[in-house]
Amino acid sequence: MKKLIFALLLCGLLFILIAGILEMPALGSIDNQSYNEVAHYYIDNSINDTNAPNMISAIMTDYRFFDTLGETIVLFTAITVVISVRIIAAGKSHYMKGDDIDG
């Protein structure tokens, strides 16, 4: 019963999503609004600015490197949290004595 109610509700959500999607420009059309002057700037100037042919690399590690720095911090936080949940909060005795987690 619960599953049926949820299925009906989500069918409504799918209908709304698809109705919104059909207003978007078609897949792969050149006059897509997201293909605007920002993308044109990257395509035209990234080879002169950075000398790297791979545009994704140029954007990720030059134009938007601060974004990538924050995302490495996300990875670092993930490690910290997983170690604290798995080892420190579980109260493993050899870690509490100050040894390394290699055990």
């Binding site: 600015d49 950075t50 000398n51 042919p53 030059d62 601060f66 720095l69």
Partner: peptide, 22 residues
């Protein structure tokens, strides 16, 4: 995080050691 202007070696396009700190 300035790349080319800050003095990193930009090199020639297509070489391994090029493109500043990338």
């Amino acid at each position: 995080l300035t790349n080319g202007e800050a003095g990193f070696h930009l090199g020639r396009t297509g070489e391994i050691i090029s493109a500043g700190f990338i």
